[in-house]
Design a protein around this nucleic acid. Structure first.
Lengths: 117, 117
DNA sequence: TCAGTATATTCGAATAATCGAGTATACGAA
DNA sequence: TTCGTATACTCGATTATTCGAATATACTGA
């Protein structure tokens, strides 16, 4: 049983292990949004959004509701928001002492990946 | 800054996105352990353990301390334990209502990948 | 120095994740 | 039915993760 629990947790973590998917979950924090609203709000490709939403669905992180020809997504459990909040605090507490963070962020720069706003 | 925060979170999640690494973090819950103790306790290959520990180190999830011949690992921040606890509660609350969980768990057993929607 | 123990790293193969482009499906309105 | 919109899925290429095996490094004690 413990093993199943660990697999379950790792699936949740895997589901959240991408910046875009975190952005999606955070965007849903205050309530459901249609896939289209998410795409617009996050400025991502439609196909990409759909793929990430499929991942979130498969890990049971979000649930979807169909209304007419749109699909509304919402977070399945508030616990996940709690988790993100804990990590936000963790991030800032680390920031004050950790210069390694700079390394981590710089690692993103040199390669063709451009981001970093 | 929001972007960096999301990348940070996703790195943490990625670091925890493997059952073995979750087992390691849980084993460290009550205090530091040497790499050897972890290997024995979790019954995993030495090289594999070392690789997973390297991941956890690179994501700043654990810190290591060298003492003579051995290396002791501990969790960098209690926040991560909190996160695991939240997910444990989440798991059990889902269990009572979610039959999909069984599918998820069954998927882990035999080799053939079933694709269900 | 050498031998033994503890841990880390490298290698190569297998698997999985990711992306954009293209295509398919579902729905509402005409 | 057909059209237009919203969303999902498939494909192929690229990159990342994972594993065990082998090797390397670091430390201790003789």
């Amino acid at each position: 049983m413990t093993d199943a629990l660990r697999r379950f947790k790792s699936e949740i973590f895997q589901g959240l292990a991408h910046p875009t998917r975190i952005a999606i979950v955070e965007a849903l924090r205050d309530g459901e949004l249609s896939a289209g609203s998410l795409i617009e709000k996050l400025d991502i490709e439609q196909a990409n959004a759909s793929q990430h939403l499929a991942v979130l669905r498969s890990k049971q992180i979000v649930v979807s509701r169909k209304a007419g020809n749109q699909v509304f997504y919402s977070i399945r459990d508030q616990a996940l928001i709690e988790v993100l909040d804990i990590l936000r605090r963790y991030f800032y507490s680390q920031l004050s002492t950790s210069v390694d963070m700079m390394k981590e962020m710089a690692r993103q720069g040199p390669k063709p990946r451009i981001r970093m706003r």
